[in-house]
Simulated scan of single mutants.
Amino acid sequence: MTNEIYCSAATVATNIDPSQVPDLVVPAPPSDLAALIRQYRSVRSAVVVQAMKAWLQRAGSDLPDPDRRGIALGTATGAGPDIEEFLDESIRLGDHLVNPAKFPMTVHNAAAGNAAIAAHCRGPNIVVSEGIHSVWSALTAAHALLHDNSADIMFVGGFESQRLANGSTGTIAAFIALSAGTAIFGENRIASPNTRSHWAGVLPRPQGHADSPEDPHPCEVGAASVMALVKFANTFAPAHGGAAAMGVVDESEAVAR
């Protein structure tokens, strides 16, 4: 595998008004998310699949074979909200009446599996959970899989959920793609050159750094993780004014802990 890895612009999806997501600059396309929620019985899976579909709608026509497409997702909150919903329904209705279709969505990698089905990905499929570092660690893992020639394209992203003031749960998902080629990105233009400047610090700064918070209290994990995912999406935001310039990532620039 060449040392040159190219990255696409990000796509995002959320079950809340995108304008209510602080600092998010990547536009979330309109969608019939309600239909996906009915299909998957899970907001998490629905939002992740929607973000993936938004990327694929703008992709080139020459995507690699399904066996050469991989996914790396990072998440701190994972299937936690789905587990809570399943248990709440079980307690409220009784085990014999709970909807069994909801149980598979309580598995931590359910959303990644559903995204793989939607994108016909039969290559590597991994989920990384490392607190607020999750999505950045998934990016590092995807980079390594490309250099190991385990895939020709890696869809990289994350999903996080946060309890909102009205008691509901908001979920956001984001995807980019990494590949040694560029044609497959289609209208997902190559991320702008400022991506290179971000890449050297692609993981959040070490604990105690002046520009980063200490590890969050457990009750704040959802909010902190959403903020980390928004930063990831914004790092790969489409360039303003349409066409974006090519950003090359050399192996020497890859993340090292």
Rank of each mutant, 00 (worst) to 15 (best):
T2G: 03
N3Y: 10
C7E: 01
D17F: 03
S19H: 05
V21I: 13
L24T: 06
P27T: 15
P29M: 13
P30R: 11
P30L: 07
P30D: 15
S31F: 05
S31P: 00
I37G: 02
Q39I: 01
S42Y: 10
V43L: 07
V49L: 08
K53W: 02
R58V: 10
R58M: 15
P66D: 09
G70V: 15
T75S: 15
D82L: 05
E84D: 08
E84G: 01
E85S: 12
E85K: 12
D88I: 02
I91N: 01
K102E: 00
P104G: 13
P104N: 09
M105L: 06
N109E: 05
N109D: 09
A115E: 03
A118D: 06
C121I: 13
C121T: 15
P124G: 13
V128P: 07
S134W: 01
A138F: 05
L139R: 11
T140A: 14
A142I: 11
A142W: 11
A144D: 14
D148W: 05
S150R: 15
M154P: 00
G157A: 09
R163G: 02
L164I: 06
I172F: 07
A177C: 00
F185H: 08
G186T: 14
E187T: 14
R189G: 07
N194T: 14
W199A: 08
A200D: 04
H209W: 03
H209E: 00
D211S: 09
M227P: 00
A228W: 01
L229P: 01
K231A: 12
N234W: 02
T235V: 10
T235D: 07
V248L: 11
E251Q: 14
A256Q: 12
